[in-house]
Computed example of a mutant assay.
Amino acid sequence: MSYRRSRAVVPVIEVLEEASSTNDVMQRRAGDLPDLSVVLTDNQTGGRGRLGRVWVSPPGKALAISVLLKPVGLPPEAFGWFPLLAGLAMSRALSGFVPREVELKWPNDVLIDGSKVCGILCELLPGMSGVVVGSGVNLTLAADELPTETSTSLLLSGAAEPDQDAVLAAYLTELTVLYREFTAAGGDPGRSALRDSVAAACHTLGRSVRVELPGGDVLLGTAVDIDASGRLVVESDAGRTAVAAGDVTHLRY
């Protein structure tokens, strides 16, 4: 596939027949590539998810996409917004392909009717010289090919045989717009309106949640806000806690 529409959006797209991890490939090549370069494959054999999870799918049925961002002059705290920025971009992009509700789950999952269609993993480059934004999108997986019972694909969600170039171009377009606005505002999530946009799209807010924290502790409460650093604010019996990282489950009671 030539990815003609996608190549009109960003300066470089490298398509790999197969890759263990597109994020690893991008990290190795980042020094020689410009801002908003892309590495992708539809056959990723050893992809990583958050919290050390493995992300693998049958060849030709999902896209693994890594985008290189090299922002200049942003404060360190601004980098915490990139997973949310990417998740918002993907949720906006995918909403044009399915008749069902596309949701953003803090910090970086994209859901369709509560089932995961895309996960995002952002990794910092040495010296905070940039960030690699990796995403995996389930395109045409059948029900018996899904990695978990809570996963879905665009095809299963009503998309008519999703075209890889169309999906990629939509995502890169949304990502580029949000990235340019954010960097033009100096990484200020308020001035760029990113914080308000993420809060409006984030279906975690207002829900009862269970958060498994990196140290193993569990926080139960209600997600009430996203603070200026992109952290999820959870209100519990102990008060309000700002969560920078954790495995969030939406509770139904």
Results as ranks from 00 to 15, higher is better:
residue 94 L to E: 12
residue 45 T to P: 11
residue 15 V to Y: 06
residue 57 S to L: 07
residue 194 L to I: 06
residue 103 E to D: 08
residue 29 R to F: 12
residue 215 G to W: 10
residue 151 S to A: 15
residue 249 T to L: 15
residue 182 F to W: 06
residue 56 V to I: 14
residue 161 E to M: 13
residue 122 C to H: 08
residue 83 P to I: 10
residue 49 G to H: 03
residue 51 L to E: 06
residue 55 W to I: 03
residue 123 E to T: 09
residue 19 A to M: 00
residue 34 P to T: 04
residue 56 V to T: 09
residue 23 N to I: 07
residue 214 P to A: 13
residue 14 E to R: 13
residue 196 D to C: 13
residue 95 S to P: 14
residue 60 G to I: 03
residue 159 A to K: 05
residue 41 T to D: 06
residue 86 A to G: 08
residue 119 G to I: 11
residue 222 T to E: 13
residue 40 L to S: 07
residue 161 E to Y: 14
residue 143 A to W: 03
residue 233 V to R: 15
residue 120 I to C: 03
residue 203 H to I: 00
residue 100 R to K: 12
residue 236 S to N: 04
residue 1 M to C: 13
residue 24 D to N: 07
residue 212 E to K: 14
residue 202 C to G: 08
residue 49 G to K: 04
residue 13 I to R: 06
residue 224 V to E: 00
residue 125 L to E: 01
residue 68 L to R: 04
residue 115 S to V: 13
residue 209 V to D: 13
residue 149 E to N: 05
residue 220 L to C: 11
residue 94 L to M: 11
residue 97 F to Y: 04
residue 25 V to N: 01
residue 230 G to I: 01
residue 141 L to K: 09
residue 52 G to C: 11
residue 154 L to M: 10
residue 196 D to P: 15
residue 238 A to L: 08
residue 181 E to C: 09
residue 221 G to V: 04
residue 150 T to A: 08
residue 52 G to A: 11
residue 76 P to W: 09
residue 237 D to H: 14
residue 69 L to D: 05
residue 191 R to I: 10
